[in-house]
Design a protein around this nucleic acid. Structure first.
Lengths: 240, 240
DNA sequence: TGAGTGTACATAACAACGTTATGCAGCGGA
DNA sequence: TCCGCTGCATAACGTTGTTATGTACACTCA
């Protein structure tokens, strides 16, 4: 068998895309074998001939999500100011997570929706992210930028991987709390929390505050950033 | 009806506790009406007379989780060095999340396991954290410490709520990535990522690096911190 | 060219899940 | 004593993931 007949069969790909679409529209509850199959005009058997079961399909959805995520991060512009590039990548990161919040959560193994037992006893051992490889690929885009930041002499001689882990923790935590609604629905969280926070981290890493804020303006100018979103009252942490 | 007969009925409480125990042992998949009822020696009807359905029970589990989480944070020692107290609270935070990882994820609406449809059409609208109130209570412990840090003149005149949001993002993100296995299973992530990261944030907030590191040692001395855990090879970000 | 082989898929059935309907035992107040 | 209510067991229903079975089509080889 050649690689195109089985590996990239149209129904297989359409199932994954239908799953992503349904996931974002109806939430994880919508990820049902019958529903997805009907969505592409097939029977539930399509899920089993192409994936072997719902868990494997969801695994593939997460993998595809990480690929798109990686492309999103890679698409962040690359200039002569690596700190501005890092900040732009952070904005792209948040934009992806906000625009694909359900997918983002699924990617990090947080959703675990469809792993219902049904007829058989087997269940994916919960939370083991087999899509680690794709996740690390995406993570490496962060490492690359940080290596450039370091090589530009902005943060001393730190280990880029370790620093990337710190930056990733920062953005990941903010994004999840923002998605969960803890920072309100407008851009308040970005302006008041994530923005200052990433600046603080970079200053803590050794860059000068002036330089970081210059880079911030450069990144904001590149991304048509509506950071000063209209503020509406809401029930969240920053509101009191 | 008096408050003890309905509000804190033994079976109601035992169902919640059974759910927490099963959740941590078997993962979200184990949170089934039949299983939980059998666990306390009752029929599935107990779930419906006391909660009205699985979603409400899970909501109550999350609420109880936030209460325990709040008590855990409140239990962090209180000394004359507020930065050391903040760091100790961060350690307690991570300890709770690691020791109750499934519960922690459920608390933040990330798990969404039992919201299967079954007979009726209704489904909790996915991800809306009705247990916000308890979550904010826990969050306020963080705000309190940071107010003391600010009043001690260590971080300028920042808004304590905003700063708390930054610190929370930081720890939340790290803890979730660590739970997901991205930082290895030993304490490497703590020593290489979270520790330096929180120091960087505090330095970025205005404290001096020397003062933060003194506070770090103080906090580590209080908590019998085995930060230098034995390093085993593993497949994760920091390993290459 | 025709029989054999295998894959992709539809149909139908099964076990397990959440939920609801029904019924019964026990209680308290009139 | 009788009524009504509450707490719960039993049994049934609809929906889920999954599996079994059968079939149509494509491809291979003689």
């Amino acid at each position: 068998m050649d690689s195109s007949s089985k590996r990239s069969s149209p129904v297989r790909q359409r199932l994954i895309e239908a799953a992503i679409a349904v996931l974002e529209q109806n939430g994880p509850e919508g990820l049902q074998a019958r529903k997805l199959a009907a969505e592409i005009g097939a029977s539930t058997m399509a899920v089993y001939t192409h994936f072997g079961g719902m868990p494997a399909l969801l695994e593939e959805v997460a993998r595809e999500g990480f690929r798109r995520f990686g492309r999103c991060l890679a698409g962040a512009a690359r200039s002569e100011d690596p700190v501005a590039d890092l900040l732009a990548m952070g904005l792209a990161y948040r934009e992806f997570a906000r625009g694909n919040s359900q997918l983002y959560r699924l990617m990090f193994g947080l959703t675990t929706p469809g792993t219902r037992v049904g007829g058989h006893r087997d269940v994916t051992a919960e939370g083991e992210p087999t899509s680690h490889a794709e996740g690390i690929d995406a993570f490496n885009h962060l490492v690359d930028v940080i290596e450039r930041v370091r090589d530009a002499g902005r943060i001393g001689q730190a280990d880029a991987v370790v620093v990337a882990g710190q930056v990733w923790s920062t953005i990941h935590g903010f994004v999840l709390l923002e998605i969960a609604g803890f920072f309100g629905d407008d851009g308040e969280g970005l302006a008041q929390v994530l923005g200052p926070l990433i600046v603080n981290v970079l200053v803590g890493l050794g860059d000068s505050r002036d330089a970081v804020e210059r880079s911030t303006r450069a990144a904001a100018a590149r991304t048509q950033l509506d950071a000063s979103a209209r503020r509406l009252p809401g029930q969240h942490l920053l509101d009191r």
